[in-house]
């Protein structure tokens, strides 16, 4: 079986579709509030200087999430963004 991918596997420049959110309690609520629901398209846009947290483009806004929290967000697949030359 293939390894389950999480948001941590998405590198800057890649996009992914959210499969399932495992977070609980207030974090789950907060993620839903910012529009991160199942089947949402999400793009990783950068990492902070020490590699954690990472910044994601979610429904038009850039949100920073910590690695631990990203572990709870499962994704379907990664696609490299098509870069314009």
């Amino acid at each position: 079986m293939e390894k389950t991918l999480t948001l941590n596997d998405v590198n800057p420049g890649q996009t992914a579709i959210v499969k399932e959110i495992l977070s609980k309690g207030s974090m789950r609520r907060r993620l839903l509030d910012i529009g991160l629901t199942e089947n949402t398209k999400i793009e990783c846009v950068g990492r902070s200087p020490l590699g954690d947290p990472c910044a994601f483009l979610i429904r038009g806004a850039v949100i920073a999430l910590r690695c631990e929290d990203c572990n709870d967000i499962l994704i379907y697949n990664r696609t490299d963004k098509v870069r314009r030359v």
């Binding site: 977070s23 207030s26 974090m27 907060r30 993620l31 910012i34 947290p53 910044a55 806004a61 850039v62 949100i63 920073a64 999430l65 910590r66 631990e68 929290d69």
Partner: peptide
Amino acid sequence: VPSSFTLELPP
């Protein structure tokens, strides 16, 4: 332990 964290980076 540190709790979870979301932070919006505005344009």
